[in-house]
């Protein structure tokens, strides 16, 4: 037996999901962060964030069309993390790194938190 592994399939799927998001196709939830609104797909959110996984696996909450996050969450940090979910690229700005990390803690994105920690530590070392 043999199989053909399409090595870029995961990134091709993610690219298409991001195109769907940018065109607001089949997006099924609005995330409200400090009066800013972000349209997204619940499946992508819950695949990337422990918080969203908990929300959308809760039968009482899974059909909600809008989720309002804690007002302490930074909307710029959230925007960067949402882009990361759909692109695998985390835009790091020195001025926003703490906001990104705190938002990642809130969203229960532990691996991103660890990466931010390492980035801050390496910046301090320099």
């Amino acid at each position: 037996d043999s199989c053909i592994q399409f090595t870029r399939h995961a990134s091709d799927v993610l690219l298409n999901l991001n195109r769907l998001r940018s065109r607001d196709i089949l997006t099924d939830v609005t995330i409200v962060v400090n009066r800013q609104q972000f349209r997204a797909h619940k499946t992508v959110l819950m695949a990337c964030s422990g918080l969203f996984y908990s929300i959308f696996t809760d039968p009482l909450k899974c059909s909600l069309g809008a989720i309002t996050l804690d007002p302490k969450v930074d909307s710029d940090g959230f925007a960067i993390l949402l882009d990361f979910m759909y692109t695998s690229r985390l835009t790091i700005r020195e001025s926003l790194i703490l906001a990104i990390m705190n938002t990642a803690v809130y969203l229960q994105m532990d691996h991103v938190v660890d990466t931010c920690h390492r980035f801050i530590k390496s910046s301090d070392d320099r």
């Binding site: 037996d1 053909i4 592994q5 298409n16 195109r19 769907l20």
Partner: peptide
Amino acid sequence: YDGVATIKEMGRSIHEIPKQD
């Protein structure tokens, strides 16, 4: 998979959804 010969295909795997219609 163990015991399965894997051929790697490096090209695109699916169609690309355009940015806009």
